[in-house]
Amino acid sequence: MSQDTHDAHHDPAAAKAANVVKLGHMASQIADFFKSYPEEQAVPAIADHINQFWNRRMREDFLATYNSEHPDLPLLVRKAIAQIKPASPSI
């Protein structure tokens, strides 16, 4: 991680790309926790966790990059994507 993050510290575009990779990683970690549950419980639980804790922009960035076909994501995350709330309108 060191070299990537060092570059990212100086270049916002590289940082943005690194952030999106990090979001994918965070989603996979969440899936790792719920993977022991039956799929019909795990998929909504993963989406619910993201809906409760990720802010608008994190979800937007995530959905803009990843879809249910994305090979970097575990299957459970891919299945959960449809249930991730798009950002609600700003107040």
Binding site: A8, K16, N19
Partner: peptide
Amino acid sequence: NMLDEAVGG
């Protein structure tokens, strides 16, 4: 997340 977004601009 704040720090990530800060680095991201």
